[in-house]
Structure formats: C-alpha cells, structure tokens
Design a protein around this nucleic acid. Structure first.
Lengths: 246, 246
DNA sequence: AAGGTGCAGTGATGAAGGTCACAGGGGGAT
DNA sequence: ATCCCCCTGTGACCTTCATCACTGCACCTT
C-alpha cells in the first residue's frame, strides 16, 4: 500500500511536468549559425565575469540558445548530462528524488548562475543526481560538455566561474541541510515561500498546497494547516491556487 | 530554558574536543626543510593521481606534514582557512553546526581525499562553514591556500583532483540530505554506525550514546532505545562506551 | 443549469521522536 | 572500600506530523 501510494505520487507529479523527454537529452536543438552574435551579446551582458574575449567568442561558436516554458523539465534524475547551462533569463528549480519517489526541493538557479552538478557529471559521464524544471519561462545558453575541461585550463575567468559555482552550490546544499535538520515545518514552509517568491519576482505565488507538500516532502494536510495558521498570524493571504506574501 | 539548554550542550561538546585553538589557524607549525623528501614520498604513495613530477615537487616544497590526535579539532566553524589538507592517514570528521549550537555530522574524509570546502573558502577568504575534528590519529599534508589557484591552471592533474573532490563532496552532501529528509532515525543510526566503523577500520565503535545523539541531532534517549532494539534484532552488541557491529 | 473534478479545510487517530524524571551500574579517584 | 560521576535503561507524557476520512467550494465541461 505504501509503495502503490508512492507510485501514485510519481504519476501525479510527472503529469504536471510538461514534455517528459528532455530536449537536452534528445539533442533536439540545433545550432543556428545566425544566432552567434546573439549568444555573444547575451554572454557579455549576463556574464561580465567571463572576461576573455576569446572565451566569449568560443562560447558564441559552440553555445546554443535554448528556451523552456514554465513547468517544462530540463533534465531528469538519472539522465545523462550533455550540456552545461548558462542561465540568461527566468529561473530553474533543482530538486532531488529518492528511489521510492520521495521528492525534495533543493534550490533555484537564477540568471548569471550555472548548474555545477553538470560539470563533473559530464566530465565523468555520470547520470544526473537531480532533476531540473523551469520555474518560469527560461532562456539558457547550452554549452556542450566537452569544452568544459579545456577551458578550465586555458581561461582563468572560466576556471574562477566554475569554482565559484561549485562553492555557491555547496553553500546552498548546506543551507538546505540546515533547514531540514534543524528547523520545523512552519519555518521551512516560510523559507520555501520566500525563495519561490524571489525566483518568480512576485509576492504572489501560484501553486497548490499539494505541490508545496511535494517540494518539502511533507503531507498536503500539514501544509494546508500551517498555511492557515500563517494566514491567521497575518503573514500571508490564501486564495485558490494562490498565496500572497505580506 | 531552551537556550540555556543549548548552551549547555555546546559547553559539553567543546570540552570533548581537545585543544580548541586550531593549530592551523594559529600557524603553529613550521616547515621542516628536511621533511621535503618525506612529503614527496607521501604524495607519491597516497596521491597517484597527482601525476606531474613538477607538481609533486612543488607540493614537497610548500607542504607541511601535520599530525592530529583523536578528538583534536582541526578547524572550527567560523575560522579562516589557511591551508588545504591532503589526508595521508587516519580520518577526519566533518560536521555542521547552526547558530543555536545544534550539530550534525556530515561525512568523513579519508586518506587520498581533501576538503573541498577549503578551496574557495580560502580563495575568497571566507569563514569556514564546517567544523573538522580528527576521528583517529591523523596525518595530513597542509598546503598553503595561495598555491591552489595557480596550480589549477598549470597542472591538469591538480585541476582534475580538485574537480573530483568537489564532485565527491557534493554527492556526499546529497546523500546526507537523502538520509535526513527521507529516512527515519533507526536507518540513519545504522548508516552512521557503518560509516563510523569504516572510518575507524573497526567493527567496534568506542563512543557514548550521547555523542551519537549529537552527531545525528537527536536525543540521547532516542538513540539509546533504538540501539537497544537493534541489539535485540541481533544487529549489534552493546557495552559501556562500546558498540560491536555484527 | 447540472454534474464532475480538483483544491482547500478540518477532525480523529497514530507513530516517531523529544523532554522530563529517575534508577541502577561501572569504573576511576581518594 | 567508598564515593562519585558518567553512562545506560526505561517509563510517562507531549509535540509534530502523517494518515485517513470526509466536507464544501470553485471552476470547468457539456
């Protein structure tokens, strides 16, 4: 019963995520030569720390602009990583799932950031340990993984960028551990809502209690009750599919 | 009451850790020129992946052999990192502590590994987010942080070593998250004991229930009860300050 | 307008684990 | 030998949260 219950959760969950087959994995996107100048401009605008002109141009040569719609899965747990994403616009939700289908939100990736999990995942040709889903409509520059390694040695700013990304992600993971290990559900819920609001650039969050429960690995009822009591405290306002942070 | 309780925990805790002022932070260790050959040999023996002869020699020039006794603190939460450790012998316990003194074991570092938290912590001159304590009598080679960056560009095997370390630590953190988020205390306890046994190369663990409780961020009573029930199941044997894994 | 479906609210119950209180025993210090 | 401290074991009780069961409402479909 417990198992079948979880399976149901997975089914419910995945039906929410549009386009299950990952575009990245299937390599559906093609380079469009005319876009090179666009990539160059995007990199210069959103990644000032990538300083070397030669590196910018290499990125423009091999990087591909990719778009994902809200809710679209970018990379699933267990799939092989073939590109490293530079996030240009929007935001990406990163979460973890265990063998039994329990899920847990980890953090958001924002413009100017990248997915450090990709680096060695790809260098070692390992399966992804995480799932990434577009939180909003999102634009990235996808860089084939085979360039990572070479650039690390040749371009100091790329090396710094990669190291900084690792460091930031480690810190995020540690903060996540802090929350799960030391905090109770009400505090975790508030943190979660704040982060989600920030990722969406809006104090109004459009989601269901069930979705929140999945992300926090909690039960829907508990989330409902906690939200209700937060509403009574005046911290937020509830509506159908809507939470207004105050 | 809750606060004073926690303070008491901190006090109890730190009294357990010998030599609170970190040797590393205080720079008490001096280079002993005669040991260069020793460092060289240690690196060659324990770090075969560090391939370049020139790199090995640079390490031998700037690295310092350091010893820590069981229970000795190597680096405290909040201190500034000035060296990167290459672990030669023994093992190091890495844990996290929050503002209120709650503590949580993260993972062990073993010979052949290094502390990825050090890399950017030092490159950015940030405070440490973790505490490291010698689990057994431990020998490391300490490398001043200022060399990290340069070596990354100059020596491919150093770059790979650093990247692999990051990746391994990320994975370890994710496994830790899995445990805390998805598993119940009995399973976490068993995992913990297995890891501790491995780190100490012995199926007999010498520690108190209270120490385990701190590491798992649990209560001593809960740990006692779970251990008792595990004993009844035949998974282990209990003694005073001693747990025998079967 | 009628019915269906998914979301939100809520009570009852139970399990896991934290907190409090205390008892008993091992082993070192004197 | 005695004392005392620390470690362990255990009962009682409480809080948090999961689970189950059900209600009512919003919005969509037809």
């Amino acid at each position: 019963m417990f198992l079948s219950n979880n399976r149901h959760r997975i089914a419910t969950r995945q039906s929410k995520i549009k386009n299950q087959k990952s575009k990245i994995e299937n390599n559906q996107y093609m380079a469009i030569q005319d876009l090179n100048q666009e990539v160059l401009n995007l990199v210069r605008k959103h990644y000032p720390q990538i300083a070397e002109r030669a590196l910018q141009e290499e990125i423009a040569q091999v990087g591909k602009v990719m778009h994902f719609r809200t809710g679209e899965m970018i990379m699933d747990f267990g799939s092989y990583v073939k590109i490293v994403p530079l996030i240009i616009q929007g935001s990406i939700k990163v979460s973890r799932e265990d063998e039994e289908g329990n899920e847990l939100f980890l953090y958001y990736l924002q413009p100017g950031e990248t997915c450090s999990m990709s680096f060695t995942c790809c260098m070692m040709n390992k399966k992804s340990e995480i799932r990434t889903v577009a939180e909003e409509d999102t634009t990235i520059i996808g860089i084939p993984t085979r360039f990572m390694d070479e650039w690390m040695s040749r371009y100091p700013s790329w090396k710094n960028f990669v190291m900084l990304s690792y460091d930031n992600r480690m810190l995020e993971l540690i903060r996540t551990i802090d929350s799960i290990a030391f905090k109770k559900m009400d505090e975790r819920l508030l943190e979660y809502l704040e982060k989600k609001a920030e990722a969406n650039n809006s104090r109004t969050i459009n989601t269901t209690h069930q979705e929140i429960a999945y992300d926090l690995n909690a039960s829907r009822e508990a989330v409902s009750r906690l939200l209700k009591s937060l509403e009574k405290e005046g911290a937020l306002e509830l509506g159908r599919n809507r939470i207004e942070l105050l």
